[in-house]
């Protein structure tokens, strides 16, 4: 038997292959590290910072840190849980996230991760930005209020769908998602609900029309089991309460 590469995560040995990140190796070993901008179908982005871990005593995003033999990684500590909760709270006050009034509630990765890290209130002062909703498309609606700038739709549309429909513009707190048309409207694009970009949003920013509340609140994916048990909604087939249609 050849010697297997491995590192330690919260005391548990995690095998990895050359080129894998800490996140990828942990997921492959069935160990959950909370994340939002990371999706195994795409190159790591490293922007949401929710997957922060301590690697040999240094804070790093696990999705962008190459796995290496002998690393000691901490993830489920009180310290990291507090930091992650703070980051989630920042995302919640930056946009307008009204879970009780959102169609995604119960099948929303953002909400599920917030519960996972023990977030029970937004803590910080709300920014209450004014962001219009774009319902110009026949099949989908974009609610920019719920966008967390993970750029998964940007990447999916550009790299998988080959349509390059989305982009992020503006600097700092002005950064915002835009639709690549002169009018800025989704209805003027070739966007389809069968696009990869329609399946990857970790929040309720991109919603499919005409199927609201097909599954009642209370019976949805994360109403039944927490995200560390069932995984990301974007990675699960529709038959299991997910969004993926292969």
């Amino acid at each position: 038997m050849s010697e297997e590469l491995g590192f330690t995560l919260d005391g548990r040995r995690i095998p990895f292959q050359d080129g894998q990140t800490v996140m990828a190796a942990a997921l492959a070993a069935g160990v959950y590290i909370p994340h939002l901008c990371f999706n195994p179908d795409f190159a790591p982005h490293g922007s949401c910072r929710v997957c922060l871990v301590k690697v040999n005593g240094r804070f790093q995003a696990s999705c962008t840190t190459p796995a290496a033999s002998g690393l000691t990684v901490q993830s489920e500590t009180e310290e990291l849980r507090n930091i992650r909760r703070g980051i989630l709270q920042m995302l919640f006050v930056e946009g307008n996230h009204v879970c009780p009034a959102c169609e995604k509630s119960g099948a929303c990765q953002l909400q599920a991760v917030a519960y996972y890290v023990g977030m029970l209130n937004p803590h910080f002062s709300h920014f209450y930005p004014r962001r219009p909703v774009d319902a110009s498309h026949a099949e989908a609606v974009i609610d920019f209020n719920r966008c967390i700038l993970c750029e998964l739709c940007v990447r999916a549309s550009r790299d998988v769908d080959g349509k390059n429909i989305f982009a992020v513009q503006g600097r700092g707190i002005q950064a915002h998602l835009v639709v690549n048309t002169p009018s800025g409207k989704l209805g003027a694009t070739h966007f389809s609900i069968h696009d990869k970009a329609a399946q990857v949003c970790p929040t309720g920013a991109i919603l499919t029309k005409h199927q609201g509340y097909n599954v009642p609140i209370g019976q949805r994916l994360y109403d039944r089991k927490p995200i560390n048990v069932v995984g990301d909604v974007a990675q699960l087939p529709e038959s299991k309460g997910g969004r993926r249609h292969d």
Partner: peptide, 21 residues
């Protein structure tokens, strides 16, 4: 820092505004 944050990552994009406030 609010003015100069690039806006890429959450804790800088949002944190700089929270700290200013």
């Amino acid at each position: 820092f609010v003015h100069e944050s690039c806006g890429f990552c959450t804790p800088c994009r949002v944190g700089t505004s929270l700290m200013r406030d």
